[in-house]
């Protein structure tokens, strides 16, 4: 589904990703962990198509297509979803209207008829329960005045509405208390199907107690320095990142 080959990228002349290799198949959950500044968020933003990065080598194939050649909205419509680490506030734009516009943009791409306001509302009511979000949020402007936890849950609500094939969750656990974390994780787990894949980016292991990954990768200084099963996350929790970073594997 997703094939990242030898990806090198940077911003303003500074090299951030220095040869990433990663292969994700449908039905899989991959976790990318790493210390601050290792390039985790850059990887997430790059997959979603944020402008401003220079790709110096490598390629990314999504379902056989050159992902890096696609505009951000094309990627979204093709089924790539990014749950933002810092969801953006859009004052004046009603949340329901925003979500319906997004859903209908996807439906149009798939050749489906747009949902009218009534049909959309019933779809949203169904999804919103999953995230235990207050319906009054939908009447407010996009992310404006939302608490940190509400913003993160609203991201997963969007994921539930847009039904992506590949979901990239960028530090979705940051700023969440344990109860909110459980709600978010439950939401994400419900959206897992044999046809979809998830790439979970996190600094801490605790999210992975609730979203169980099939594979864990450790990112350090722009390279994946170690890959393993879910037990790798536990090991990292216990021993920190230093033992991997300092091991000879780093240069391998």
């Amino acid at each position: 589904m997703l094939e990242i080959k030898n990806l090198h990228a940077g911003v303003e002349g500074r090299q951030i990703l220095k040869g990433i290799h990663l292969s994700i198949q449908p039905g899989e959950v991959h976790a990318v962990m790493g210390p601050n500044g290792s390039g985790k968020s850059t990887l997430a933003q790059l997959l979603a198509g944020r402008a401003g990065y220079t790709i110096t080598a490598g390629e990314v194939l999504y379902e056989g297509q050159d992902l890096l050649d696609m505009d951000p909205e094309e990627r979204a419509r093709a089924g790539v979803f990014l749950a933002f680490q810092y969801p953006v506030e859009i004052p004046g734009v009603n949340t329901t209207y925003f979500l319906r516009t997004a859903v209908n943009a996807m439906r149009k791409h798939r050749g489906q008829a747009p949902l009218d306001a009534v049909k959309f509302l019933s779809l949203m009511r169904e999804k919103i329960k999953l995230l235990e979000l207050d319906e009054s949020l939908l009447k407010r402007s996009v992310n404006e005045g939302f608490s940190g936890g509400e913003k993160k849950r609203a991201e997963i609500l969007q994921m539930a509405l847009l039904e992506p094939r590949l979901a990239v969750l960028d530090e979705t656990d940051s700023g969440l208390d344990i109860d909110a974390l459980k709600v978010v994780a439950r939401g994400v787990n419900r959206l897992k199907t044999p046809q979809t894949a998830q790439l979970v980016i996190t600094h801490y292991q605790r999210l992975l107690d609730h979203i169980i990954p099939d594979y864990v990768h450790v990112l350090h200084d722009g390279c994946i320095v170690k890959s393993g099963g879910k037990e790798l996350a536990l090991e990292l929790e216990e021993r920190g990142y230093d033992w991997i970073v300092k091991s000879p594997l780093q240069t391998a």
Binding site: G49, A51, A76, F84, V88, F98
Partner: peptide
């Protein structure tokens, strides 16, 4: 630009 990118990332032109 971040608002526009956020919309783009949701499939909106």
């Amino acid at each position: 630009e971040d608002q526009i990118f956020y919309c783009n990332a949701r499939g909106i032109e």
